[in-house]
């Protein structure tokens, strides 16, 4: 049963991701990106990471894609019929296929987990505890990074 869910979600995610990269209309790409993020959130639920699934929907679907759509509306002429790929598309496809093949081969044959996976735990309380004990320094650095990004974005985007 779980496998059926996995294959449906994976096919959905990959199809949406292909649409993001290949669609001529960039607004369609952004909408497909929303679906791809939702599919990945479903994968997280299958992996018993329900807190991260919620974060994925809140930040990626609710935040980043809306920001991307704003930027698209402010900059791109949707009707423009120009090439969407640059001239290195063929070579890039070759290289990407090669690297993906290597990664898939390594994933299938190279990794053997010794021992059984631990039983699922409730992740949100455990994550909160980890963030404020073991990982408190990266946590604080991330807050400084967000502040710097916010100030930087305001300064870059404002008109003098």
């Amino acid at each position: 049963m779980q496998e059926v869910f996995f294959f449906v979600l994976a096919a959905f995610t990959v199809a949406a991701a292909l649409l993001v990269v290949l669609d001529r209309n960039i607004v369609h790409s952004a909408v497909a990106l929303i679906f791809s993020f939702c599919g990945v959130a479903g994968i997280y639920v299958l992996l018993d990471a329900e807190f991260l699934a919620a974060v994925q929907v809140l930040i990626y679907v609710g935040g980043i894609t809306i920001l991307l759509l704003f930027a698209i509306m402010l900059t791109t002429r949707i009707a423009a019929r120009t090439a969407i790929f640059n001239e290195q598309a063929g070579l890039s496809a070759l290289i990407v296929l090669g690297i993906t093949a290597i990664l898939v081969y390594a994933s299938v044959t190279g990794i053997h987990v010794a021992g059984k996976a631990p039983p699922p735990v409730e992740t949100a309380p455990a994550l909160g505890r980890l963030l404020l004990t073991t990982h408190v320094l990266p946590f604080e650095v991330a807050s400084v990074l967000l502040l710097a990004a916010m100030v930087g974005a305001i300064i870059l985007a404002r008109r003098e």
Binding site: V14, A17, V20, I84, F85, S92, V96
Partner: peptide
């Protein structure tokens, strides 16, 4: 597979937002 698709997009798309 997702990584490969994303990498193809980074290498070939002309639009910076894409």
């Amino acid at each position: 597979v997702l990584f490969g698709i994303g990498m193809f997009g980074v290498l070939t798309r002309r639009n910076a937002i894409a």
